[in-house]
């Protein structure tokens, strides 16, 4: 696990469900073919209503043109991030698009498990609501040692909740690495 992640924030509202993260019609692509995999990045967050895409103003597409990678690599969400279906394609799509970390008020259980066990991205919880304090495009520094983030535009710092019982799995890079390190498999 890296100690510091620096990047641009993409801010979303509450209840970002997995149909918004990766619409069901795109779940047909292979997850093991490197070329097809790019489609998941290309369609990441493509069903977020345009007025809620990239808060506070909205109207900011996560992926532009034919790209499969986003200019944003840190997502700031609200409550119940990743609710809805169990599709692991959701954290996968965000990872393919270049997202390293999501910071939300809270997560739906399956998305959280998938992010951790699949080693796709780091799902942090804030200790306060952040999607009304950080703007899409703000430059953010995430400190994974001290569990805090700094908005480099405003200079403000915010504390994050430690990863707790899933830290070891996140640090291993997923459940399979964790199980191998602990001689479970």
């Amino acid at each position: 696990m890296e100690n510091l992640i620096v990047g641009k924030a993409y801010v979303l509202g509450d209840n970002i469900d997995t149909d918004q993260i990766i619409p069901a019609e795109h779940l047909v692509y292979s997850t093991s073919d490197p070329e097809e995999l790019k489609k998941y990045g290309h369609f990441a967050l493509s069903s977020v209503p345009i007025d809620k895409a990239g808060l506070p103003e909205g109207g900011k597409l996560f992926i532009s043109g034919d790209n499969y990678q986003s200019e944003y690599n840190i997502i700031i969400g609200g409550s119940n991030f990743g609710c809805g279906s169990s599709r692991e394609h959701a954290p996968l799509a965000l990872q393919v698009a270049g997202v390293k970390v999501v910071i939300a008020e809270s997560y739906a259980r399956i998305f959280y498990r998938n992010a951790v066990d699949g080693g796709f991205l780091i799902p942090y919880e804030g200790t306060e609501k952040l999607n009304d304090k950080i703007k899409t495009g703000d430059k953010i520094e995430v400190d994974l040692i001290d569990n805090k983030i700094k908005n480099l535009n405003s200079g403000k710092e915010y504390q994050l909740r430690p990863l707790g019982s899933v830290y070891d799995i996140v640090n291993s890079g997923g459940i399979f690495n964790y199980a191998r390190q602990n001689k479970m498999i």
Partner: peptide, 29 residues
């Protein structure tokens, strides 16, 4: 590997949905 797996709980059992990695882990272990 489906969020609506919780449906089976109507039969006095524990049933829940997971993603592909967790399912792959179960498939082997």
């Amino acid at each position: 590997t489906d969020s609506h797996t919780c449906t089976s709980g109507a039969f006095g059992m524990f049933a829940t949905g997971v993603g592909n990695t967790d399912a792959a882990f179960i498939l082997g272990t």
